[in-house]
């Protein structure tokens, strides 16, 4: 019986492998010929070419087009119909009496968006890192149903930003869930999304809520990589809990904290979707951030200016490149430190 079964398996294997072998033979001769003619470097180019082509079409080409657009003017969509203006669009963005006073700039909305984004980045990054750290510290403790709580904190990360924005709009709108609870508790309902400061705070809170699970997970991994022996040695040394945190946990978690800090920074600079759904940039321009400015100038406003939007996006891209380089530098340094330990 076993022989019969083995025989069937062998025949089935041969049937599956036959077309593979046939295909391999089909390509074998031309590939060998190619290698003879181009050498091993040529073969590397041959195999990399499809990937490079995709990268070229979807990344490099749009980047070049974007740079070219940023040097043209007018509302025409196609590059051929547009007028070359050199660095005028950049000049327009930087044309200000005082950068601290957006009203003194020709593109006041750009500078409002810049300062809003900067404020958002500072506050949101600080809050994100702090909340992620506290969350990770709590989830690292011996909790009941620890896996469940970890899943709960990670769940918002799985949601689409639009869903996040809608959920929180239902909660924060004038007749939303939060005001209902405030009212039931005897308080006065607040226009969370209409009052400037509350709307800005809501934008920060919602983006922290949506992404904190991901960063907490990175920090949790870092916390779990700290050997338990070190804490026991500290206990034997009579170290107080707060000192253990400052002198042992925090320094050993620093590499993960740096990664979280840089990733949060990059993401905060790019903030758009959930806040756009939540507040639409309002009230007024109080939650207008750079990406929304680019989107609106390039696509959504009555007087579209793709050149100006491209120039703004190139500037934002430059900031992101710097932040990414910092992150890569940190990752490389962590790797080297890891090897030294």
């Amino acid at each position: 019986m076993a022989d019969v079964r083995n025989g069937i398996a062998t025949r089935a294997g041969a049937m599956i492998l036959a077309p593979v072998g046939w295909l391999a033979n089909l390509f074998d001769s031309p590939l060998r010929m190619l290698q003879r003619r181009t050498g091993s470097n040529g073969m590397a180019v041959f195999f990399l070419a499809p990937n490079m082509l995709v990268f070229g079409i979807f990344v490099l080409f749009p980047l070049v087009i974007n740079i070219l657009y940023s040097m043209t003017g007018g509302g025409a969509l196609f590059l051929g119909d547009r007028t070359f203006v050199g660095a005028d669009q950049y000049g327009r963005l930087f044309s200000c009496s005082s950068y601290l006073d957006p009203k003194s700039c020709i593109e006041d909305l750009f500078w409002i968006a810049v300062w809003n984004t900067l404020a958002f980045v500072v506050l949101q990054v600080a809050m994100m890192v702090a909340v992620a750290l506290v969350t990770a510290l709590v989830l690292n403790r011996e909790l009941r149903a620890r896996s469940f709580w970890r899943a709960v904190f990670f769940f918002p990360v799985l949601l689409s930003p639009v869903v996040v924005g809608l959920i929180w709009r239902w909660i924060l709108q004038r007749q939303g869930l939060l005001n209902l609870m405030v009212f039931e508790a005897g308080g006065t309902p607040v226009n969370w999304l209409v009052e400037r400061n509350w709307a800005f705070t809501a934008a920060i809170m919602v983006s922290v809520w949506a992404h904190v699970g991901f960063y907490a997970l990175i920090l949790l991994a870092g916390l779990q990589a700290i050997p338990k022996d070190l804490y026991e040695a500290a206990e034997m040394d009579g170290t107080r809990p707060l000192r253990v945190f400052w002198r042992i946990t925090l320094p050993l978690l620093a590499p993960n904290l740096l990664v979280v800090l840089v990733l949060t920074l990059i993401r905060a600079v790019q903030i758009f979707d959930e806040v756009y759904v939540l507040t639409g940039g309002g009230p007024g321009t109080s939650t207008l951030f750079l990406t929304q400015y680019i989107y609106e100038v390039g696509f959504a406003s009555m007087l579209r200016n793709p050149g100006l939007a491209s120039a703004a996006s190139i500037l934002m891209g430059a900031v992101l490149v710097v932040l990414t380089l910092i992150q890569l530098g940190i990752a490389r340094r962590n790797e080297q430190r890891g090897k030294m330990r």
């Binding site: 050997p227 022996d229 070190l230 026991e232 040695a233 034997m236 040394d237 009579g238 170290t239 002198r247």
Partner: peptide
């Protein structure tokens, strides 16, 4: 542990 006046050498050394 801290109040027992003992010192411990760990298998992994547990150096910071």
């Amino acid at each position: 542990a801290a109040d027992r006046g003992l010192a411990m050498v760990f298998q992994s050394y547990a150096l910071y």
